[in-house]
Every structure is written in C-alpha cells, then in structure tokens.
C-alpha cells in the first residue's frame, strides 16, 4: 500500500521515468533469459558507446540550460582527448585527465567570452572552436608515445555480481563511473538545488534572474566553462580510457551526435542519458546482428539504422521540443 501511495505522489515525469526504466529492465532480463551472454555483450556495448556521448551531451545541457548554444563540443572533446593523452604520456593518466578537463574548461571559457562578453554569434564561436581543434590537434600530433599507466577496470563489490546488470554497469572504468555520477548529480543539481534553479532561470528568462540578483554573466561563464570541462573529460574518456591512444579526428562526430542526444533528451540529464543509451543499444545490436549474420543486409544500411530511427522517432513522437527560451540569445541589461 505504501508503495502505491508513494507512486501516486510522484510527478508524472518521474512516474514515466520509472515505468520506462522498469520496462527496459524487464525487456533486458527477458533478452538475457533467451540469449544469455549475447544480451550482456550488447548491453555492455550500449553502456560503453553511450558514455562519452552522454558526457558530451551533459556539456550541451549545462551550456544551453544557461542560455549558450555550444556547437563546439566536438572541438572541445577533440582537444580534451589530445591534451589528456599527451598529458598521460608525459606525467601519467591522472595528470592527463586533469589536463584534458582543464583545457576543456578553458575552451568553454573561450566560448563564454565570445558569447557573453564579446556577444559574438554563438554558432560561429563554436565553429571556430571546431575548426581550430581539428587543425591544431592534427598539426601538433606526434606518434610513438604511450601512456604511463592505463585506466583500470573497477569492479564494484556486490553490485558486480548482479546477473546482467552487474557486468553491464558495475564492471567499468573510472571515468565511466564518473559519468554515471555526473549525470545523476547534474540531474539532481539542475532540478533540486539553488544553483540549478538559477541556471534554468538564466537560460529561460535572464532578466527575471537578473532582477532578483542572479548574476547572469557569471552563471553563463561558470556553466559554459564547466560544460567545456565535461567535454574535455569526454575527450579524455575517449583517448585515455576507452582507447588508450590518441588519433587525429578520433571524436568522429560524437560532439554533434551529442547535440542530437541533448535535444532528444529534452535538455534533461537523465533523459539525455536514456537517449545516449538508446543510440548505444542500436549500435550494439547492429554489431551483434553482424556477428550472428542473421541478416544479409549491407553494413551501410545497418549503419544508417540508428539515424533513420532517430528521425522517425522525432517525427512521430517528440513533436515540438522546447529549448530553453533564451538559448543562443546574448543578454543585455536594459
């Protein structure tokens, strides 16, 4: 009875989330029952694939929730990956990751300077970051270096023994766990803390925030820089954790995909994570179908499946998604 009452007290949003999560779990365990380790393999891929995307999408959410469009996530990630890797070859992976995060934050701050202080069009500023990142990382790349140390895999005691979920979620690497934490923390912070309320107000109606003494510029600076830090971390995740190497252009469009995920996730950390997991699931299924050779379809068609599905989903269900109202608008005090 208590549970029923508790359910009733939940907001429709939380209730839907709960229903979705439960449905997903049931489906996952049915699949696990039928296909056993193959289900684990697909879901494991889902988590790995989605993690950098989710992290990058968090960057987008932080920026846009406070009213700044960040189309330079791709570039911030790439530079983050570059710096993190070479940092790791020079002074170890901890240094590398921190360096990647710091440089990401600097690029975020650069975007903030452009958007808030110089009032440059934000799409241009982001594009500048993207071009510069591609050029600089490629120009200064030197091969033949290896990281000092490597990211370990941490198995969380007890949790790791849960069938299916244990292997999928609790036998991962540090930055992956960090991403889980960031998503959850960000979700809570955005909707439960003063900082979150103010951030959302700054992104929706900056003058309303201003008139109650919230420093709009400062919030935008802080959040866009923090967003850049997250993008840098996502880059570090790619180079130092997921691959252990840096290659030119290794972000392969993930920064742009993150924007799509952010929008699909309606600018909410938890939903964006779900969207990222959805992409991961699709791509994992693609691989598994290839492995099993159950279908004789050219990989190109399988490769475009996630994209076609996304468009169909958006066209059918999402309807008009509502961006933070002031996203992309520079704020001038009257």
């Amino acid at each position: 009875m208590g549970i029923v009452n508790a359910l009733r007290r939940l907001s429709p949003d939380s209730r839907n989330t709960l229903v979705a999560v439960l449905t997903g779990l049931v489906a996952a365990y049915i699949a696990y029952g039928i296909w056993d380790f193959k289900a684990t393999a697909v879901l494991g891929f889902m988590v790995r694939y989605s993690t950098p995307l989710a992290l990058a999408a968090m960057c987008g959410i932080l920026c846009e929730r406070s009213g700044v469009v960040n189309i330079g996530i791709e570039g911030q990630m790439l530079v983050g990956a570059f710096v993190a890797f070479f940092g790791a070859t020079w002074a170890g992976i901890v240094f590398g990751v921190v360096a990647g995060v710091v440089v990401g934050a600097l690029l975020g701050a650069f975007l903030a300077v452009c958007a808030v202080s110089w009032r440059i069009n934000q799409i241009i500023a982001g594009t500048v970051i993207n071009i510069l990142a591609a050029g600089v990382t490629s120009f200064f790349y030197r091969q033949g270096r290896t990281m000092k140390g490597s990211m370990p895999t941490w198995e969380i005691p007890l949790l790791k023994d849960i069938p299916l979920l244990g292997k999928v979620f609790f036998q991962n690497q540090p930055l992956t766990y960090l991403t889980f934490a960031i998503v959850i923390v960000l979700q809570v912070m955005l909707f439960r803390t003063p900082w979150g309320l103010r951030t959302r107000a700054v992104g929706e109606h900056p003058s309303a925030a201003d008139t109650v003494g919230v420093n709009v510029s400062l919030y935008r600076y802080g959040n866009v820089a923090a967003g850049g830090a997250l993008a840098g971390l996502a880059g570090a995740l790619l180079s130092v954790e997921a691959t252990g190497t840096f290659e030119r252009g290794m972000t392969s469009g993930r920064g742009f995909l993150a924007l799509a995920i952010m929008i699909m996730g309606r600018w909410r950390p938890s939903l964006a994570w779900a969207a990222a997991l959805f992409f991961g699931l699709l791509n994992g299924l693609v691989n598994q179908l290839n492995f099993e050779r159950v279908i004789d379809v050219p990989p190109q068609f399988i490769g475009m499946l996630p994209d076609v599905l996304t468009i169909v989903v958006l066209a059918t269900f999402a309807g008009r998604v509502r961006a933070p109202a002031a996203s992309g608008q520079p704020y001038t005090k009257e």
Binding site: L259, A260, D307, L314
Partner: peptide, 18 residues
C-alpha cells in the same frame, strides 16, 4: 513535425554517406 533541422541534418548526413 517540428523536428529541429540541426538534428535532422546531422542524421541525414550519416544516412546519405552510407
């Protein structure tokens, strides 16, 4: 349908390359 053109074109790029 209110699908944002930025997402749609990002998706469309992948589809068309493939």
């Amino acid at each position: 349908r209110g699908v944002h053109e930025v997402i749609a074109t990002i998706m469309m790029n992948t589809i068309l390359v493939n």
